[in-house]
Design a protein around this nucleic acid. Structure first.
Lengths: 214, 214
DNA sequence: CCGATCTCTGTACGGTGTGCAATGTTGTCC
DNA sequence: GGACAACATTGCACACCGTACAGAGATCGG
């Protein structure tokens, strides 16, 4: 609230600027401290005035990624399942749009302000759907797990190309029906494991289970 | 099959030995090439005779971790839900027992032999439960996502202590009911998000949804 | 103006993965 | 048995990385 005036030279940067260029330089994984500093025209050590260590930069990036999926998708007049699904798909898109972002989410506890807001709104959705407080909380966690887990797995798989490429490549593989008969039979579906369609199916299935809990 | 005899000196190591000590040295993350080499009494470059790069070592580690949860838990005469649950909990335990292992699973596609076997058996479980081939495949993926996603999230959270510690710490936090009323109300449950109990609840909920698909 | 306080820099340390040329061992073939 | 090719291993080197530490200079309150 109060801009405390302090002795010493003015700061030439802000923490936000640092995260900005970190995001700009993000490419599969968080950029190096030295890289960010170079882009800012500053010696690497300078960043330690604003961040305790590299991990802090990564944590800040995590919250930035989270904030890229509009949490407002969780509110509105649409039916509750739709709201969850829309938000989940939006977050998935963000994470897949920045390969490595999903993996970064698993680096440290997710406790930023955006995460808190999303949690609150998911609780609201499930409460409005008729679940008890406890079941709403458990369902919230289950949904988070599904979205992040799925996004991370498919991000790892998608490193080799687009969704369509991966499906096509999978389809061309031949599974020995002697060793893995069921896998071979199910292969056309297995090949689509990393598609948005499968993502939506799993999510709907999970939500079905959640409302069963009522 | 045939031990092709080649010119050149005998190899002093095997790829398996390397993975052995990599596993032994594993501590939160995959050990460095140099560390493994030192433990083997060999110069770092030597390892490149057996592995193309560091990533290969990590991929080998992934399959080792996967193999630590007995896939036989997925077969037997017990009711199918019990088999899935037992295996899932076993895998979760393995991953939580080696912090960082879960995150490693998200580094690259999971396509080792153990993964294939687990997939096949999950398909068998769901087929025996009456699901169509397609639904069994989709359910298999949903379960994998849940187990890996959940284990990874709680592994990240558990870095600060045991399960009980984390729950206790969470419970002591005070959530402002003005900003996050539902979160505040649900906090006693939210605090247990990383427990095995929540894991089982989510899994059972997901399985409920899967059988709804019949 | 003085001293406290702060930012930023120079330098340095110990670490990482891995490419390349040299060394020496081992097998196959004449 | 000797020549030769293939190979494992090494020493050295490069280009990075995160970050600790001491000092120089700027900026404030008094």
């Amino acid at each position: 609230m109060d801009e405390k005036t302090r002795p010493g030279p003015k700061r030439s940067l802000t923490a936000e600027q640092i995260v900005d260029v970190a995001l700009e330089l993000f490419d599969g994984e968080a950029p190096s401290i030295r890289g960010v500093a170079a882009k800012l025209g500053v010696r690497p050590n300078t960043l330690y005035t604003y961040l305790p260590d590299r991990g802090a930069m990564e944590r800040a990036l995590v919250d930035r990624f989270l904030a890229m999926a509009d949490p407002d998708l969780l509110v509105g007049r649409r039916v509750w399942r739709r709201r969850v699904e829309d938000y989940a798909c939006a977050l998935r898109s963000v994470l897949l749009g920045h390969p490595g972002a999903a993996a970064l989410l698993h680096t440290a506890p997710i406790d930023g302000p955006t995460a808190a807001l999303v949690g609150e709104r998911l609780l609201a959705v499930f409460t409005s759907a008729g679940l008890s407080t406890a079941d709403a909380a458990r369902s919230t966690y289950a949904v988070i797990v599904h979205v992040l887990g799925s996004a991370t797995l498919t991000a790892a798989d998608l490193r080799g190309g687009t969704e369509a490429d991966i499906v096509a490549a999978r389809l061309e593989m031949v599974i020995d029906p002697g060793f893995l008969p069921l896998t071979a039979a199910a292969w056309p579906v297995v090949a689509t494991w990393n598609t948005e369609e499968q993502f939506r199916w799993s999510l709907r299935t999970l939500l079905n289970g959640c409302v069963d809990a009522r």
